[in-house]
């Protein structure tokens, strides 16, 4: 317990480093590009276009979706983009800064955390646009249920940051993860409710299997919760809140334990 407190305090004390890293990440991400900040929007919109052509025009496999399918797709893609960027870029954040970590006694955990914060900004912007589009399509999202987005943002951030921290340490010891992760994530997207609705699982799987799936895939439920707020304007079920909070807590404690165990040893392996 004392270790957790010390580690959390350590992160809090380096918040100005995290802030500067986030600014650096955001600025260098769009520098020397003609469309600059617009890439934050163009990226998910281009992905949306590709998936829409594939799923709706070519395969025509949209099912079980109550509402405009492009918006449904967009709501899933936005969160997936935040998640995948956090895991891929956060995962390589220590290996990519090997020289720095071997030169300065720096709080290493700041690197994956700053990636998650930086990739959250385009997601937030995209979510605002999605909410506007949903309203334009007559979706009932402007309700008291929107209040849930704040605690859900906190839970999502902690979950993704914890995942990025664990991946950043794991990639130092298993460099192949850097090559493997994008492929696993691509498969993960099809296994998560990005193209299909989570309700489809209730129709096709027994309750036990559905519960096991939701516990094994923390992103599935987070994605679905965000969709309930930004696409359906519905309240998140209490049962779902319980699962996402428990997953968040487990991942958070695990990530701090991992970092505490390997923090001193990481530089030796870089």
């Amino acid at each position: 317990m004392r270790m957790l407190k010390t580690r959390m305090l350590g992160i809090w004390n380096r918040r100005s480093l995290i802030g500067n890293l986030v600014q650096a990440e955001l600025r260098s991400g769009v520098a020397r590009r003609k469309f600059g900040l617009f890439w934050w929007l163009l990226d998910p919109i281009l992905l949306l276009g590709i998936y829409w052509v594939l799923v709706v025009v070519v395969l025509d496999v949209r099912r079980n979706v109550d509402g405009p399918y492009p918006l449904f797709l967009f709501s899933g893609l936005l969160f997936w983009k935040w998640f995948s960027t956090s895991i891929i870029r956060g995962g390589s954040s220590l290996v990519g800064r090997a020289n720095l970590i071997k030169s300065i006694s720096v709080t290493k955990v700041a690197f994956p955390i700053s990636i998650v914060v930086a990739s959250c900004i385009p997601w937030m912007l995209g979510t605002l646009i999605l909410s506007g589009l949903s309203m334009a399509f007559g979706r009932p999202i402007l309700s008291l249920n929107m209040v849930q987005s704040l605690p859900l943002l906190f839970v999502s951030f902690v979950t993704l940051a914890s995942g990025a921290i664990i991946m950043s340490v794991a990639t130092v010891y298993f460099r192949d993860l850097a090559g493997l992760t994008p492929h696993v994530l691509r498969a993960g997207y099809y296994l998560s409710p990005g193209l299909w609705s989570l309700e489809l699982l209730s129709e096709r799987l027994p309750d036990v299997a559905r519960t096991v799936y939701l516990w094994l895939n923390p992103v599935a439920l987070l994605m679905s919760c965000w969709r309930r707020i930004t696409f359906s304007g519905a309240a998140i079920r209490l049962e779902d809140w319980g699962i996402v909070c428990a997953q968040c807590l487990i991942l958070f404690v695990s990530s701090l334990l991992v970092f505490d165990r390997y923090d001193q040893d990481v530089a030796r392996h870089l």
Partner: peptide
Amino acid sequence: VHPMFGVGTGFHNELTGYQNALLYGSY
């Protein structure tokens, strides 16, 4: 202790001198 190895390691090419000074100071 304050180690100084490889002064300037961790600079971002895309950032200005000012922005890099800010970042390097926080490192």
